[in-house]
């Protein structure tokens, strides 16, 4: 009599095939996910450093001062700092948006989750007659998969 159903061997082979397909598929997804995750953090750190460098060029020379590590958080930043206000699409102060839980909750969560901070390493050299140059190292730090990451950007700001 013909017996219907599957034998143990068939089940084992099926599971083996499924596992062989499943594990690389999972790795592929997780690797891709991690790459996307890292690239996003790197891009954000890069854009934050650029923002600071642009501000450094426009701000008074004497206001460029050392910000020691571990630095200042990008979220809940103090007023009139590099990231407060973060954006202002209106012409008045009332339209200013800060990176706070109230103003930008999703962005705030992202920055808090990764503890994004900035530091400034400033070296001042005076050549006399008011000829001075500051070498500013902009250091953006964040936490990623329990690793402390750093992005560095160096700019030279002349006094004249």
């Amino acid at each position: 009599m013909k017996k219907s159903g599957m034998s143990l061997l068939e089940i084992v082979i099926s599971i083996s095939i499924a596992v062989v397909i499943f594990i690389p598929a999972m790795n592929m997804f997780s690797t891709t996910g991690q790459a996307v995750f890292k690239t996003r953090n790197f891009s954000f750190a890069n854009s934050a450093a650029r923002r600071i460098s642009q501000r450094l060029m426009a701000m008074p020379y004497e206001d460029i001062v050392e910000v020691p590590l571990p630095g200042i958080a990008l979220f809940d930043a103090p007023a009139e700092s590099f990231f407060a206000p973060f954006l202002n699409t209106s012409g008045t102060n009332s339209g200013a948006k800060n990176i706070t839980q109230a103003d930008m909750p999703e962005f705030y969560s992202y920055l808090v989750q990764h503890d994004f901070r900035y530091s400034l390493s400033v070296s001042n050299v005076s050549f006399g007659d008011g000829d001075e140059i500051k070498s500013v190292g902009i250091l953006i730090t964040w936490s990623e998969n329990n690793k402390n990451m750093m992005y560095r950007l160096y700019v030279y700001v002349p006094s004249l």
Partner: peptide
């Protein structure tokens, strides 16, 4: 470890 000074960082580049 948020806000604490770590022993080292990893350069992202």
């Amino acid at each position: 470890n948020a806000g604490k000074l770590p022993s080292h960082w990893t350069d992202s580049a």
